[in-house]
Write a protein that binds this DNA or RNA. Structure first.
Lengths: 208, 208
DNA sequence: ACTGTAAGCATACGGCGTAAGCCCGTCAAA
DNA sequence: TTTGACGGGCTTACGCCGTATGCTTACAGT
């Protein structure tokens, strides 16, 4: 026992956890070094003892989210594992609305992120996909998941862009007709719709 | 003839054109009101006589890109039109690497953007899709296109993340094995691969 | 008790978006 | 021709931002 100091020591992990909390409530644009420091009871510059630059924190946040996605089971049918994992990923992406954008800006290079990707690719290869097709499959899945997460998040509780801030849609009848679907659809059902198309298409590819 | 003044008058369009050029060379993070003003031979604050805020410029840039995508032909098979248009959109997204991120942050509410979306939705509905399925189809297409554009752009000419700045991939054999595909693949072929799966899946849906 | 070291703090710099007010060229009305 | 309003561009200033630099402080090992 070294005796509890009055100050809980700062660590990279504590910083990233706080950054996630701060970004979850208020968006990434609210995440500044000063505010993050304040949240931790510390000056902004103290963070730099544990973190190289702000980008380092952002990368850590991405990895934090990937770590929270359950890895796919390796011992069941690949279709099942992929479905489950895609839905779990979507959940996380929606829970942390800053994730998709951040991921797009910074890429997927953290350890947990790579582990996740590696497992998915392994799943495809074990199922019999060629390396190239495994890559195709990963890419399709990633695009679909991120795309849907993005769409699910545009707009908040009720005031999303398609009901309040939209311009006059009188010139765009098809958009106008589909506004209810754009605004109030059951996202998980929607996501599953496309997911099944992708999985079926990939499975067909597997059968030569 | 009113006589040519020595100063070409500023307009919203001229500002947005310059913003696109500036962002194309150097990325969005290089796009500041001051630099944009300098590019136009004007002080930053002068831009505010023609533009409400910087976000206004960003929205204009999104619309600029959508305006550059040829609208789908309405008189040929929907599969053909969709294929062509998706490829044309991908081209534009890749030509303006800031587009996908910007679009994700700001949404698709500009006039040209809505017109584009309206045409696609109209195409699906004319082909016999229900409103709900037309929306599904749009969403899948958008996700796929943006996802591939994003992946095509991560990293520049030769030094992309998968060859230079990557961490040790020794712990991630599947990622390591697919690195060549991630780095040097033929993007248009890849994109078409997934596009065909999506179109086929949608066509199957159409046949009840 | 002394001292090396690392963690945290204070200050400062250059850049950002933009609010507020000035200045001056242009042009319509007198 | 004079004048006076107006609008576009300019200047200044404010409060943010990320972060380089150097100081202070408190604990660990002797």
């Amino acid at each position: 026992m070294t005796g509890t100091t009055t100050r809980t020591p700062l660590t990279r992990d504590r910083i990233i956890d706080a950054a996630v909390v701060l970004a979850d409530s208020g968006g990434v644009e609210e995440l500044s070094m000063r505010k993050l420091g304040a949240e931790l009871g510390v000056e902004a510059m103290s963070l730099y003892n544990h973190v190289e630059k702000k980008d380092d924190i952002l990368d850590g946040m991405i990895d934090y989210v990937f770590r929270a996605i359950p890895l796919p089971a390796a011992d069941s049918d690949w279709r099942l594992s992929i479905r489950e994992t895609a839905l779990a990923a979507l959940d996380q992406f929606v829970e942390h609305p800053w994730m998709v954008n951040l991921l797009m800006q910074r890429g997927i290079y953290g350890p947990s992120s790579l582990r996740f990707m590696d497992r998915i690719l392994g799943l495809f290869r074990a199922a019999g996909f060629s390396e190239e097709d495994a890559h195709h499959a990963w890419q399709m899945l990633a695009s679909h998941t991120m795309g849907y997460a993005f769409q699910q998040m545009s707009g908040g509780e009720d005031k999303d862009g398609w009901e309040s801030n939209s311009p006059d849609l009188s010139a765009f009848p098809n958009v106008a007709a589909l506004t209810p679907y754009l605004a109030n659809c059951e996202f998980e059902t929607e996501f599953a719709f496309g997911l099944e198309i992708i999985i079926a298409g990939l499975a067909a590819r597997l059968r030569d």
